[in-house]
């Protein structure tokens, strides 16, 4: 009896597989890409983000469960610019899914849609764990969300032509709403133009450049290398000669050094989300930038 029931359940499960597979299965490396894809794909796609927004995007733990997700994906959308190099390649090579391999139609590298800044002239790990293609945190310039959305829409249209009308409409709608928000954020951040800031890691450079903020230095010694007391002393000397508005700290790096600098020099330390889900308020793309703007402008 029990065995029959089990068999029926199994058979039903197997029969149900093709039904659920009708929707385009999209896997994204980071949550912000998932949210953006949901805006464009709407009900036509199933989207799953591998990494959580509270984790360090450079060193995501390569869990085997990610392989299971990649195995069933029709489309994999990545940030690119080597942000995933420390964790994604072995997962991909074990997923045995030719649809999403590098070079396949079902793999979209979003970094191709934007212009990267800080491309190093010379590449040496004596300068820390640098990214030879340039700074990979480009999505924190909200302007970039528009070309990213276009790239995703173009890819979805190609992969599911039957639903292309929906994607085109969703894209137009998203762009309209986003442009309105861009105008609002621009207005709210305008007073900050020209202000000096410090950041822990070079996470927010695209955001800073977009709104005219100036970077005095990073708390970490070199990309990926924790601060030394000598480095902190040098940073303090710089702070003495400038009026620093705030210290930007991400949610995943240790914040003791930033805290120390903040209290010693009476500068506010601001925890900025680097991705959707990094802080409670940043539950979607719109709310993430709303929160970034709110925290940055001390509202």
């Amino acid at each position: 009896m029990k065995r029959t029931a089990l068999f029926v359940i199994l058979a039903a499960g197997i029969l149900a597989l093709p039904l659920t597979a009708a929707k385009l299965q999209v896997v994204t490396t980071y949550p912000y890409i998932a949210k953006l894809t949901e805006h464009i794909g709407g009900a036509q796609v199933n989207v799953h983000a591998l990494a959580g927004g509270q984790w360090d995007p450079h060193t995501i733990m390569a869990k085997p469960s990610f392989i299971a997700k990649l195995r069933r994906a029709d489309l994999l959308i990545i940030n690119g610019a080597q942000l995933e190099i420390g964790w994604l390649p072995p997962l991909l090579s074990q997923a045995n899914n030719p649809k999403v391999n590098v070079g396949s139609q079902g793999m979209l590298d979003l970094s191709r849609a934007v212009k990267l800044i800080d491309v190093p002239d010379s590449v040496s790990r004596a300068h820390g764990d640098i990214h030879p293609d340039g700074n990979p945190h480009y999505y924190l310039n909200p302007d970039n969300m528009l070309p990213l959305a276009e790239a995703i829409a173009a890819k979805l249209e190609r992969m599911d032509p039957a639903a292309s009308q929906t994607f085109v409409e969703n894209l137009a709608q998203f762009k309209l709403k986003w442009q309105a928000k861009l105008a609002e954020w621009e207005k709210r951040l305008a007073p900050l133009s020209g202000a000096w800031v410090i950041e822990y890691h070079k996470n927010y450079d695209y955001l800073l450049r977009r709104y005219g903020l100036q970077l005095l230095g990073t708390v970490e010694l070199l990309p990926g290398i924790p601060p030394t007391s000598k480095h902190i002393q040098e940073l303090e000397n710089k702070i003495a000669g400038a009026k620093v508005r705030c210290i930007l700290q991400d949610v995943y790096n240790p914040d003791e050094a930033s805290r120390h600098l903040a209290s010693k020099h009476d500068i506010p330390m601001i925890k900025l989300p680097h991705d959707v889900g990094a802080v409670r308020e940043a539950e979607g793309l719109f709310s993430m930038f709303d929160e970034i703007v709110r925290r940055l402008s001390h509202e």
């Binding site: 469960s65 392989i67 299971a68 195995r71 045995n96």
Partner: peptide, 12 residues
């Protein structure tokens, strides 16, 4: 020869 099952959990 390796096979990854099309399941939500990882099975290889």
């Amino acid at each position: 020869l390796a096979w990854v099952a099309p399941l939500d959990i990882f099975l290889q």
